[in-house]
Design a protein around this nucleic acid. Structure first.
Length: 457
RNA sequence: GUGGCUAUAGCUCAGUUGGUUAGAGCACUAGAUUGUGAUUCUAGGGGUCGCGGGUUCGAGUCCCGUUAGCCACCCCA
């Protein structure tokens, strides 16, 4: 195996395979992925978020600093050259380090997006991998309610732009939960209580009650908590019902008011009613959330879990700097989303990113094909010319299979007559273009066909 | 990390109480015909039955291990 040009001894062949939870991305999937990344980039930028990037590897102490044993267990780590190194398991911790290190030159508020791969050595499942990508956006250095609203609007715009027909953004405010916990004298038990309540989507209320009892929560308190977590209905009705449960405490009051203001703002920003739901059971296990928390689900596939979640935190970088940096952000789980779209059959599977397939009909006209392809590309179209002048039927078949919207077909007879056949592959509809050797005329006609096809021709 | 289910050709799957050279459809390749995605005809390639052990005269089939996928717990995107 030292020289790849030599045939290998079959006995020494290494089996090509990927690690558990790690995957190759073939062109159809990779194209879909890039399409969503493009949309995310566009939406984030449309709100003024700017890109950053950070290394995949960090000093281990940076990553373990937050010290939850769960993330610790999942962390990929190794020693290299005497240094303890870890692979990032999310983009928030690197952001915290980044902010602590650079906030002086960044200015506040700082709005960044970061789309990158992260690694977690946990067990795999559908839509859950050990290597996956997150598309984060965060606003740090401000506690403005406008930043909260903007976060929800970005999530809404993003999921809409991806073309999801039905999704729900479920929001809550940690302070509502803190309020009721304070009233019940359970403030110091918040983590176990929130974890238990967070399961309500999957576990029955009785099951959750049993878990709470297991943590020594008395029945009356448990009933109150469940009543709160099970509230549903229109956002207004849920908020009204929250009043007696949590409105009497200072944090509860602040949380409810903040949610009201947020829903109000979303309405003013033209978010359709029903898209945002107040769900008091949304807690998110992460301890560092202090205000708004949000999750979003595909309505047709709720079991897939949240595809975009986030929330507000008080002190992003407290481990790395004395500077107080509050912030808010959310993260799109693109791999989970893609798994969901694929399951719903909603994933467009093309094997080409090009618009026009140029049939290589007649070898004698090679120069003309090259000239035409170049002109089409200058006009902004992506063109693939067949590599060999094989049988026309064969070429068209391949073009159709690969998902080209158009095939341009010009043979000896067409060149003589000054015409071209432009085929819409999907509808098998063919248009004859009269161009009489005038390439700009041809280009314009092909562009028109492409536009028509994109409109559903 | 714990438990359950699964693994046969590129894809979808057959394969009898364990019994000859492991099959089908689709896909693929080449040829014939045709200047156009189709039809038809002919020929062909492709599987160490996930991998490694064991039981047996004999294993795709039974047992153990392992790897991967799915599901539940846990956690989360």
């Amino acid at each position: 195996m030292t020289d790849p040009r030599l045939p290998s001894d079959p006995r020494t062949l290494i089996e090509p395979r990927t690690l558990k939870g790690f995957r190759d991305h073939l062109p159809p999937q990779a194209l879909a992925r890039e399409g969503i990344l493009d949309i995310a980039r566009r939406v984030y930028r449309s709100y003024g978020f700017v890109p950053i990037d950070t290394p995949a590897l960090e000093y281990l102490e940076i990553l373990t600093g937050k010290g939850s044993d769960e993330t610790d267990k999942q962390l990929y780590r190794f020693t290299h050259g005497g240094r303890e190194v870890g692979m990032r398991f999310d983009l928030t911790v690197p952001l915290a380090r980044f902010a602590a290190q650079h906030i002086g030159t960044l200015g506040i508020p700082f709005k960044r997006y970061h789309m990158a791969t992260v690694w977690r050595g946990e067990n795999t499942q559908r839509g859950r991998y050990r290597e996956f990508m997150q598309c984060d956006f965060d606003t740090i250095g401000t506690t403005s309610p406008l930043a909260d609203l903007e976060t929800v609007l970005v999530v809404h715009d993003l999921l809409s732009a991806i073309g999801l027909e039905s999704f729900t953004i479920r929001i809550n405010d940690r302070r509502v939960l803190s309020g009721i916990l304070e009233r019940l004298g359970l403030a110091d038990r918040s983590t176990v209580v929130l974890r238990a309540l967070d399961k309500l989507g999957k576990v029955s209320p009785e099951g959750v009650a049993a878990e709470l009892a297991g943590h020594g929560i008395d029945a009356a308190a448990s009933a109150d908590l469940l009543k709160l977590a099970l509230l549903s209905g229109s956002p207004d009705s849920v908020l009204d019902a929250l009043e007696p449960l949590a409105g009497g405490t200072a944090p509860g009051r602040a949380g409810i008011d903040s949610l009201r203001a947020l829903l109000d703002g979303a309405g003013q920003a033209d978010v359709p009613a029903g898209r945002i739901v107040v769900d008091p059971s949304i807690a998110r296990g992460l301890d560092y959330y202090t205000g708004l928390v949000l999750e979003s689900f595909l309505d047709e596939l709720p079991a897939l879990g949240s595809i975009c979640s986030g929330g507000r935190y008080d002190n992003l970088a407290g481990l790395y700097t004395k500077q107080h940096l509050p912030g808010i952000g959310a993260s799109l789980g693109i791999d989970r989303l893609l798994a969901g779209l694929e399951e719903l059959g909603r994933l467009e599977t093309r094997e080409t990113a090009a618009d026009v397939f140029l049939v290589y009909f007649d070898e004698a006209h090679r120069g003309n094909y090259l000239r035409i392809a170049a002109a089409l590309r200058r006009a902004g179209m992506a063109v693939e010319m067949a590599a060999e002048p094989k049988r026309v039927g064969q070429q068209l078949k391949v073009a159709s299979k690969k998902g080209f919207p158009l095939a341009l077909d010009i043979g000896r007879d067409e060149f003589a007559a000054g015409t071209a056949q432009c085929k819409r592959m999907k509808s098998q509809h063919s248009t004859v273009i009269d161009w009489h050797g005038d390439v700009p005329v041809l280009v314009k006609a092909v562009a028109a066909e492409l536009a028509a096809v994109r409109l559903g021709g």
